[in-house]
């Protein structure tokens, strides 16, 4: 599903963000990526989305060799990857329904399919009654649930989450994690970058710890790895 082979990424400023990272995530896995700020977690997500190019190394996503994917074929690869951000990134001029439907329109889904899919997603994230609300009328947790619904509405096989609970209180953070766990149980491979120690410890999922651009620990059903 995701294979990363010996990748390094050095920004134009000269600062190395990733340094010889190897990673393999199988289909249906739920993986936490943890580490301090600047450890390379977000760079990893950007490389998997091909927002950035690796300086060296190879990346395969859904059996596609990302390094060689052309600009023309990139949209098809991205359609199979959902993405959730810390700051939600919802369109403030559109309501909840339109924000989720937007993802379907972008991939040119048939009109008759859009309504059903959006309602199913709203039901999954528990926001059926708020489909007409605008983002500024929702709490942080609700906005993140809309963002997850938007990320999942195209049925991606992989869901990448970059600090999805970073802006949320503990109660809402748990709500979000429950939804991500539910998506994983339905077959979606989930990769969550987080700082939330409590959640990582409690959920007992595979946990990869990064530091200084390297993976320093990869624990199955483990918890947060503490650096000495």
């Amino acid at each position: 599903m995701i294979i990363v082979e010996n990748i390094s990424k050095t920004y134009s400023s000269g600062a190395p963000a990733l340094n010889g990272v190897d990673l393999r995530v199988e289909k249906g896995e739920f993986v936490f990526v943890v580490g301090n700020s600047g450890s390379g977690k977000s760079t990893l997500i950007k490389l998997l989305l091909k927002e950035l190019e690796p300086t060296t190394g190879k990346i395969y996503v859904n059996k596609k060799f990302l390094n060689k994917i052309t600009r023309k074929r990139l949209p098809m690869v991205r359609r199979d990857i959902g993405v959730v951000f810390q700051d939600f990134r919802l369109l403030t001029d559109r309501n909840v329904f339109e924000n989720i439907a937007f993802a379907q329109k972008v991939v040119e889904a048939p009109a008759r399919q859009i309504r059903g899919q959006v309602l199913a997603m709203l039901s999954m994230v528990g926001l059926l009654d708020k489909y007409k609300s605008f983002p500024n009328e929702l709490s942080g947790g609700e906005q993140q649930r809309v963002a997850i619904a938007r990320a999942l509405v195209n049925n991606p096989s992989i869901l990448l989450c970059d600090e999805p609970t970073g802006n949320l209180d503990p109660v809402n953070s748990w709500e979000i994690m429950k939804i991500l766990d539910e998506a994983n149980k339905r077959g979606t491979t989930v990769l969550v970058v987080t700082h939330n120690m409590e959640i990582v410890q409690a959920m007992k999922k595979r946990t990869i710890t990064m530091s200084g651009g390297k993976i320093i620990s990869d624990v199955e059903k483990g918890g947060y790895f503490y650096e000495d």
């Binding site: 949209p75 690869v77 991205r78 359609r79 993405v83 369109l91 972008v106 195209n154």
Partner: peptide
């Protein structure tokens, strides 16, 4: 810009 950036990440084609 924000909308375009989201569109691109979701998988919109250049033409779209």
């Amino acid at each position: 810009k924000e909308e375009i950036s989201i569109m691109k990440l979701i998988g919109a084609t250049d033409m779209f």
